[in-house]
Computed example of a mutant assay.
Amino acid sequence: MDDHDYGPNNSNRDFALKGTALELFRDYWANPSYGMPGVPGVFARVPLGDVELFLLDDRYHRDDDAAADPGRTMLGAAQLEWLKGALRDSRATFKLVANGSRMLSDRPSPESRGGEGWHNFPRERQAFLDWLATERIDGVFFLSGDIHYTHLTERERPGTYPLTELTCSPLTARVIPAHSRCARCP
């Protein structure tokens, strides 16, 4: 879910109308499920033959991107454990992890925070990536949005296949050539 599907720009778990946003999402999106018992949100698992979608909710439990707490979270502990269990249990060849914010990209850079994405939650992201490598989960591909142009990220991982993320928002967005720089783009 993108922040604008949830509430104001860059909304997080502090959004006062998050319960209303969840109700409206349920009214308009035919997810097979919405979170788990006792853990609200719009995350769900969708099997499609030899492909399985893992739809994440990066808003309902998200801490403020700029918070000083190094243990801050984008997904929340319960959703992250759900994702790990679902990926571990999946027998699909291709596991597509879809999220409203970028997952692998370090934009604007690994040294500076800015722009929305899992790079603003480095401990949570690194722990997940380490877990993914340790568990040797094959066939994982990330899909994301929120940056208003198309971007392909590849993250090399020693001893295993590289992880890839396609960021595309909106679907009609153009690709920014590597040799040029968009003044509006992070």
Rank of each mutant, 00 (worst) to 15 (best):
W29Q: 14
N31C: 10
V39W: 03
A16C: 10
G38S: 08
L129F: 12
E23M: 09
D27R: 15
R72N: 02
T20A: 10
E135S: 12
T20W: 10
D146R: 03
E156N: 11
G49S: 08
D50H: 12
P108S: 07
D5M: 05
P40L: 05
W118R: 02
F25C: 06
F121W: 05
R45I: 01
N120A: 12
R174L: 05
P47S: 08
E23A: 14
L55E: 03
H4E: 09
H119K: 13
Y28C: 11
W82N: 03
S180A: 12
G100E: 00
F43N: 01
A30E: 13
G159A: 07
S90R: 03
G114W: 10
E154P: 07
F25W: 13
G145M: 05
H148M: 07
L24W: 10
D5N: 15
G76I: 00
M74H: 06
F43C: 02
R45L: 04
Y28F: 13
R107F: 11
R157H: 09
T20K: 13
R181E: 13
A127F: 00
E116Y: 06
F94A: 14
E156L: 09
L83C: 02
A173G: 09
E81G: 02
D63P: 06
T93N: 15
T93C: 05
E23P: 07
G38L: 06
G139N: 08
Y34G: 01
R91Q: 14
T164N: 05
T93W: 08
W29R: 11
Y161E: 13
Y6M: 09
A86M: 06
T167F: 02
L80I: 01
S105Q: 08
G115M: 03
Y60P: 00
H119R: 09
M36L: 15
P170C: 10
S101N: 15
S109I: 07
E156K: 11
E116P: 04
D64P: 03
A178P: 08
E81Q: 13
A127G: 07
G35R: 04
W131V: 00
G145I: 00
N10D: 15
D89E: 13
D64H: 14
N12T: 03
D63M: 02
C185K: 12
D50V: 04
L56H: 05
Y28T: 09
P162R: 11
V97N: 04
N10H: 14
A77N: 11
L83W: 01
P108V: 04
E154A: 13
R181H: 14
D64L: 04
D138V: 01
E81C: 02
S90P: 07
S105R: 07
G76L: 01
G115I: 01
R155N: 12
L53W: 11
D146K: 02
G159Y: 08
L24G: 06
D106W: 06
R113F: 12
G115F: 02
G35K: 00
V46C: 08
P108F: 03
S105L: 06
A86S: 14
T172A: 13
L166Y: 09
V175R: 15
D89T: 06
R184N: 11
R125Q: 08
E154F: 01
A77F: 09
T167L: 02
